[in-house]
């Protein structure tokens, strides 16, 4: 990743102050991995899903609160809990 910050994509051009951002990256053995990330709400209900970028990164625009990230990659599913707040991006690194 050439010294890039572990976690989500760059925030240039994103209105961070008014959004509640959850973002991060998927890695396997330290290398970015292609897959999908689902965002589940506090009740475990699907809210959104995105494919990861070529560098394994993802981003959601959510609302303040506790969420679950579910990473789906060939042969594996991993859940992570994240607390999001408005005005700062929650960065989550997920190893699968």
């Amino acid at each position: 990743m050439c010294g890039a910050k572990a976690g989500g994509p760059e925030l240039a051009g994103v209105d961070v102050a008014s959004e509640t951002i959850i973002q991060g990256s998927l890695t396997r053995d330290g290398e970015p991995v292609s897959g999908y990330v689902r965002l589940l709400d506090g009740g475990g209900e699907f809210t959104a899903e995105v494919p990861t970028s070529a560098t394994g990164q993802f981003r959601f625009f959510a609302a303040p609160g506790t969420w679950t990230l579910r990473a789906l990659v060939p042969g594996s599913t991993v859940d992570r809990t994240v607390v999001a707040q408005r005005g700062s991006a929650a960065d989550v690194a997920i190893a699968v």
Binding site: E19, L39, T47, A48, E49, V50, F60, F61, A62, A63
Partner: peptide, 18 residues
């Protein structure tokens, strides 16, 4: 839509700007 969009907490799916 997702429960949070239905209730009014979110305006759009959570992978899109609100």
């Amino acid at each position: 839509r997702s429960p949070d969009e239905f209730s009014g907490k979110l305006l759009a799916p959570a992978h899109l700007p609100q």
